[in-house]
Design a protein around this nucleic acid. Structure first.
Length: 390
DNA sequence: ACCTGGTCCCGGGCTCGGTTTT
DNA sequence: AAAACCGAGCCCGGGACCAGGT
């Protein structure tokens, strides 16, 4: 038993009696195999894809709706299930008897991790072949050729690309062009927050997601808490309070609950106390960026944000002060000038807010305070947990 | 005029798969 | 077969320049 395990045990992580039993079960960044309360939306998606079940190609489709409305959860779960029903990869294709019409392949990729042509082709190819795909050292066009070969020799492929039109991801239009440039046998399905008339791309079909209705969100939260938290860690009234506060955004609601549970856990409490809940809610800014966006950043940027949210307010009072202290940290190996540039980039990407302070000491343009725009408590915990293993 | 904060851009170097040479 | 080399994408560093204040 190593030291971390011992500490974990003292923290009650593996006793089963703790407040936070399974972080993944309540975390806003993990999705269930069977999403809760989105039956009608799943039906509408299946309606749109229905030509695939009778042997023809489904239309290109744009799935849209606000943050935390279940788009990713539903499409990821649905595509992963559909993939098990579509014909197995080419090798066995010839020996299978076609009892039912051959379904196209179904592939889900996340534009947050595949924001360049190279990465998009890489992830799509990795999903349709068993062979390993090089991460570096090969040209984008070579990768496109490999993808074309893989697709044109088998059944058509429906590729869902999640998180289009975010600050650090390409537009749906661009993603679709990248895919259709490779092969005419790819049907694109894009997911995004912008309404259909606000984007350039003209899909054949659209599927809209609405915010969770209050009682559906409460049902969702109750279900996830039942597996993720200790028994009676959260009262029904508390769940309702969160549901009320989150106004239909499952991401924010789960982030608040997870934060509250982390807080209670650290304090050694046996249930989530009102102060824990307040703290959990307090550490989810509104509006909040999706935690998944932060986690998709490169290692160096995640490290930088971790250091930033760990700073006391006084050291975040201006970009230059924050730059100086972060750059001097031993765990950060970026130069001060890069830290500064990245902080401005993150603010531009709306992961940080720059709040200009009006204090007239000194000359020059007044500095601005940096305020994180994502769930900081949960972020710190997730960062701590993942960085524990090298 | 002067100062500091903020934006934008690009050259260079790093890593790593593929290719050529030894 | 091994080693040297090449070129791909991507990240870092930093400088030029613009914006907004005294």
């Amino acid at each position: 038993m190593n030291i971390d395990d011992r500490i974990e045990r003292r923290l009650g992580h593996d006793t089963g009696a703790g407040v936070l039993v399974d972080l993944d079960a309540v975390s806003p960044v993990s999705h269930l195999e069977s999403p809760i309360g989105r039956g009608p939306a799943i039906e509408r998606l299946l309606d749109a894809l229905s030509p695939a079940f009778s042997g023809s190609l489904p239309p290109s489709t744009y799935v849209h709706g606000p943050k935390g409305s279940g788009k990713s959860a539903v499409v990821a779960a649905l595509f992963s299930r559909l993939a098990t029903h579509s014909g197995p990869p080419r090798a066995i294709q010839t020996s299978t008897r076609a009892v039912e019409p051959t379904l196209p392949g179904f592939v889900y990729v996340d534009a947050r991790r595949a924001s360049t042509r190279f990465r998009l082709y890489h992830d799509a190819l990795a999903a349709v072949t068993d062979e390993s795909v090089p991460e570096h050292g090969i040209g984008t066009d070579d990768l496109a050729d490999s993808l074309r070969n893989a697709i044109d020799t088998g059944p058509d492929v429906v590729v869902a690309v999640d998180h289009a039109n975010e600050p650090e991801t390409p537009s749906a239009m661009t993603l679709v062009e990248w895919l259709t440039d490779v092969s005419g046998h790819i049907v694109p399905v894009c997911l995004g927050r912008d309404p259909p008339d606000a984007i350039e791309w003209r899909p054949d079909a659209t599927v809209a997601f609405a915010r969770y209705r209050r009682h559906v969100l409460v049902e969702l939260l109750t279900s996830r808490c039942s597996t993720g938290l200790g028994r009676d860690a959260l009262t029904h009234d508390q769940v309702r309070e969160i549901g009320e506060w989150a106004s239909g955004d499952a991401h924010d609601a789960l982030a608040a609950i997870t934060g509250a549970a982390i807080n209670a856990e650290r304090a050694g409490a046996s249930t989530i106390r009102p102060t824990d809940l307040d703290e959990g809610i307090d550490r989810v800014p509104k509006p909040s960026a999706a935690l998944g966006r932060v986690l998709a950043l490169s290692e160096s940027r995640r490290r930088l944000l971790y250091e930033l949210v760990s700073l006391p307010d006084s050291e975040r009072s201006s970009v230059s002060v924050a730059t100086e202290t972060i750059a001097s940290r031993r765990t950060v190996d970026l130069s001060a000038s890069t830290v500064r540039r990245v902080l401005y980039e993150l603010a531009d990407a709306e992961l940080l807010d720059r709040v200009t302070v009006q204090q007239s000491d000194g000359k020059g343009r007044p500095p601005s305070r940096l305020v994180p725009r994502f769930p900081t408590l949960v972020y710190r915990e997730l960062f701590d947990r993942t960085s524990r293993f090298g």
